[in-house]
Amino acid sequence: MEPILNIDNLKVSFMTSNGEVQAVRGVSLSVGKGEILGIVGESGSGKSVTSMSILHLLADTARIKEGSSIRFDGEELIGAPKKRMREIRGEKISMIFQDPMSSLNPLIPVGKQVAEMLLEHHKDISKDEAKKAVLELFAKVRIPEPEKRYKCCPHEFSGGMRQRVMIAMALANKPELLIADEPTTALDVTIQDQILQQLRELEKEYGTSIIFITHDLGVVAELCDRVIVMYGGLVMEEAPIDEIFEHPSHPYTMGLLNSIPDMEQDKAVRLKPIPGSPPDMTNPPAGCPFAPRCPYARKICGAELPEFTQVGEGHSSRCFLLYPDAPADDNNPFRREV
């Protein structure tokens, strides 16, 4: 699959009164055309900051370090002029967020807000044409009674309906890439299911690539083609969807999978949580950021950062225990019998 987006060695820090918060510390990833890439991680893992960097949506306190590169369709976005970014936003790359209420203008009818997207990028279409296109979009994202809903303000909508408006807006110009940052986290499972199904259909129909950011492994399993697991501002593991669930190859990924109960979970057996809490990014650990919480950590893990080891087709993981010279003792979950 030819990549539409290539992020290379992205480093982003925030300058705060407590010092430099190293939110993203060298992330490289790519998204193929028509691919749905999941980015999984907990709060503070750097997943949102990575995605916000793409469209220049970071706060003023953010600094993108030298050597970072974000190439979209061959074009370098870091350092791109404001005017060019305005053209790209909404036209080529769109984004939807967790809280649709704070992304919509509360005073303007939703139909008009979506129409703005079309009018902004196409100087040649009339307002009537834009309205017609919006009504079609509303029908596509299954907003009932589009004509009536066109004139409603956001507060008259439920959370799920607002998120549909956001999706309609994001897709108005048939972008090549859609970035969805926890778009279903605030929604009920029933509504989440409807939205996921829609995203799947839209991806098929338009061939839009999607970056889907979430902390919910279930959502990833239902939607994504490939997954990137982030922790402490770094990519820890990258794998095709089936691989990550069948052969998780990083202790953090394994910990995540172990800590969620499935519908078959034996109630008498305790869950296996990951002990401790995520690292403080003003002073990130010198070695593997997961080492302080890792049940398999060795001396070297706290001192040096491991490189990626290829463990399968399109599957790589950043862990010393996968190194060929790693000791194959009982405390190595990856030891393979030769």
Binding site: S158, M161, T190, D193, Q194, G218, V219, A221, E222, D262
Partner: peptide, 21 residues
């Protein structure tokens, strides 16, 4: 509607989204 953390089972799942709010 509950997402299943198992891609193979998720693909087999009958898609029976509940309509409406």
């Amino acid at each position: 509607s509950v997402p299943i953390a198992n891609p193979k089972l998720a693909r087999q799942k009958e898609k029976s989204s509940m309509e409406g709010d």
